[in-house]
Amino acid sequence: MNDVLEFVLTEPITAPAPADLDQAWARHVAVTGSFDRSVDRAVAGGFAADRLGFAFLSGYQEALRHLLPELAGVDMLAVSATEEGGAHPAAIRTVLAPRGEGWVVCGTKTFTTMGERAQRLVVIAATGDVVDGRPCLRAALVEADQPGVRVTNRPPLSMAPEIPHATVIFEDAAATLLPGDGYTDFLKPFRTVEDVHVLAATLGWLVRVGRLAAWPREVSQRLLAAVAMVRGLDLSRPGSPGTHIALGGVFAELDRLLANSAVLWEQVQPETRERWERDRALLAVAGRVREQRLAAAWRRVEGE
């Protein structure tokens, strides 16, 4: 196992920029093979990326592998949960039903990140049962290249347009049931696990930017300290108040670091700087939900 802190400080930055998402993913796979922990792979993959969008790719994929280590490999994965009414349990209309000796999925997912590139989809669907007044959801693995799966590209977003999104229609698509409850054991913790891994990848990418632009050592030290903070989060209990509060602290540190080092972006290569200005809103996409989780975590520990 490599030391990821030493890796991002010493690894040569010589590889040409990837031409597309597939090349970016191939680079991620190539540079992360010697790291055991998913967070370390996210940091290393982010460092290997030449833009924030491709760093997001590394974080997103490693978040999935953290929750589903049995899916480790080179296939690109995607979570397919969001429907017209959102991704809350009550909004899920996609159905998972037994068929013969297996299961099939029927329904429409309106926003699946990586949709057209993912070889395998983790689909959140309802079984028709109700537990404690809530629709029972399960997660199921669906191979994307089967006739029962129809993927339609959505227009690129203004931020990180390299990352595709799609509408996916499932028509009696064969599925493999994954263990546990689809909401409490997968979808709910995934939001936190994704935040951690995307943050880790972003920090790795920022170390790369700083090295290329010869940022001061103090900035590199603070970036490495933030990486160490992320690596120290307890992802064995992603729903715990302590994890959410500590994660809030790391995001706050990143905000301070970015604010204090804003002038240093003048030293960054223009194309990279322009992409950063275009894509940095990606870091705030789930900001409101994170704030809600953070407030809830403080209420729990303070007994409110």
Score class of each variant (00 low, 15 high):
132 D>L: 11
109 K>G: 05
237 R>G: 07
100 G>R: 08
187 L>A: 09
251 F>V: 14
205 W>A: 03
50 D>T: 14
289 V>W: 13
135 P>Y: 09
176 T>I: 13
278 R>M: 00
133 G>R: 03
77 L>T: 06
133 G>T: 06
188 K>T: 03
208 R>P: 02
243 T>V: 15
80 S>T: 11
294 L>Y: 14
75 D>Y: 06
48 A>G: 07
61 Q>K: 11
223 L>C: 05
23 Q>V: 00
244 H>T: 05
191 R>A: 15
113 T>L: 01
130 V>R: 01
148 G>K: 00
248 G>Y: 11
289 V>T: 14
172 D>T: 06
5 L>F: 00
56 F>R: 04
191 R>Y: 11
174 A>N: 09
17 A>E: 15
271 E>A: 15
103 W>S: 02
49 A>D: 11
31 V>I: 12
165 H>R: 11
238 P>T: 08
251 F>H: 15
43 V>Q: 07
242 G>K: 01
135 P>L: 09
267 Q>N: 14
297 A>W: 10
71 L>P: 00
102 G>F: 04
303 G>C: 05
211 R>E: 03
63 A>K: 01
39 V>Q: 10
97 A>G: 05
62 E>F: 04
177 L>A: 13
79 V>P: 04
234 D>C: 02
66 H>P: 00
162 E>T: 12
245 I>V: 15
100 G>Q: 00
220 S>A: 14
289 V>Q: 10
180 G>T: 04
296 A>W: 08
